[in-house]
C-alpha cells in the first residue's frame, strides 16, 4: 500500500489545486482541481472562450492564477520565491501562431534556449538541433528563416524548438487551428509520434479525431469548470451532461 502510494506520488507531474482565475472580477476559471501523471496525453475541448487557453497557460504561469496552486513535482509555481524560469525549462509549449523568432534562422531558433538557458556548448546544441530537425523532417530548412516556411513547417519547427529543452511535459494550445487544412495532418502526425514515444502532453484542440484517437484522457471545459472528464471513448460516445451533448452535436 505504502509502496504503491509512493509510486503514484512519483508519477505526478502537475497538480492543480483550487485554481481560480478572473479578469477584473470576471471569473474565467472557478476552483479547478486536477492531476496530470507521467505519460498521460490529455485533450482539452470546450466552446470558444470557456477558458481552455487560460487553464493551459496557467500551467507554466504565462497566466498567474488569481487563487489556488499549480504544483510541478510538488513545487508551487505560484510561490513568488520559486524560480519560474527553471521550471519552464521542463514544460514545453507550442502556440497556435507558432511564435518562431523571425530574427533567427530555424536552427538558431532551436539552439537559443539550450545555449542560453541550459548553457549547452555550441557544437552540442548544433548537433541537438540537427537531430530534432531530422525528427520533424525539416533538415533541409536549418539555415533558412521562419518567413520562408509554410504554416505546417513552422509548427513542426515550433514543436522541435520546445523539445530542444528536453521537457517532461508538453503544452499545445490549438496547434493546428491556424493551419490550412492540407497542413493539419503533418503536424498531427508529429504529435502522434510524440505521444507514442511516451511524452506527457496536454493539448487544447478542436480536432476531435485527434482527441478521440490519441489522448488517454479528455477534459471538457464549460461554465468556468471542468464540466466532464473521462476517457475519450466515454466523452464522445457516452456524454453525461447536456452541455457536452450540445457541444458535441455542434462540432461532430
Amino acid at each position: 500500500m505504502s509502496a504503491d502510494n509512493k509510486n503514484t506520488q512519483n508519477d505526478i507531474i502537475l497538480e492543480v489545486k483550487n485554481m481560480t482565475k478572473s479578469y477584473d472580477g470576471h471569473v474565467v476559471l472557478n476552483n479547478i482541481n486536477t492531476t496530470i501523471r507521467k505519460g498521460e496525453v490529455i485533450s482539452i475541448i470546450g466552446p470558444s472562450g470557456c477558458g481552455k487557453s487560460t487553464f493551459l497557460r496557467s500551467l507554466n504561469l504565462l497566466e498567474t492564477p488569481t487563487d489556488g496552486q499549480v504544483l510541478f513535482h510538488g513545487t508551487d509555481l505560484t510561490d513568488p520565491t520559486v524560480n519560474i524560469n527553471h521550471i519552464r525549462e521542463k514544460i514545453g509549449m507550442v502556440f497556435q501562431h507558432f511564435n518562431l523568432f523571425p530574427n533567427m534562422t530555424i536552427k538558431d531558433n532551436l539552439m537559443l534556449a539550450p545555449m542560453k538557458v541550459a548553457q549547452m556548448p555550441k557544437e552540442e546544441a548544433s548537433a541537438l538541433a540537427d537531430s530534432l530537425l531530422k525528427r520533424v523532417g525539416l533538415s533541409d530548412k536549418a539555415d533558412t528563416y521562419p518567413n520562408m516556411l509554410s504554416g505546417g513547417q513552422k509548427q513542426r519547427v515550433a514543436i522541435a524548438r520546445a523539445l530542444a529543452m528536453n521537457p517532461e511535459v508538453m503544452l499545445f494550445d490549438e496547434p493546428t487551428s491556424a493551419l490550412d487544412p492540407e497542413m493539419v495532418g503533418e503536424v498531427l502526425s508529429i504529435m502522434k509520434e510524440l505521444a507514442q514515444s511516451g511524452m506527457t502532453m496536454i493539448v487544447v484542440t478542436h480536432e476531435m479525431g485527434f482527441a478521440r484517437e490519441v489522448s488517454s484522457r479528455c477534459m471538457f471545459f464549460a461554465d468556468t469548470i471542468i464540466k466532464e472528464e473521462n476517457t475519450p471513448a466515454e466523452i464522445f460516445d457516452n456524454p453525461q451532461t447536456d452541455r457536452l451533448k450540445d457541444f458535441l452535436s455542434k462540432v461532430l
Binding site: 524560469n85 519552464r88 509549449m93 501562431h97 511564435n99
Partner: peptide, 15 residues
C-alpha cells in the same frame, strides 16, 4: 513586437 514572441521565449525558460 507581438506578445507571442516574449511568451515563446519565456516558455523556453529564458529570463
Amino acid at each position: 513586437i507581438d506578445i507571442g514572441q516574449s511568451e515563446a521565449a519565456r516558455s523556453l525558460g529564458l529570463t
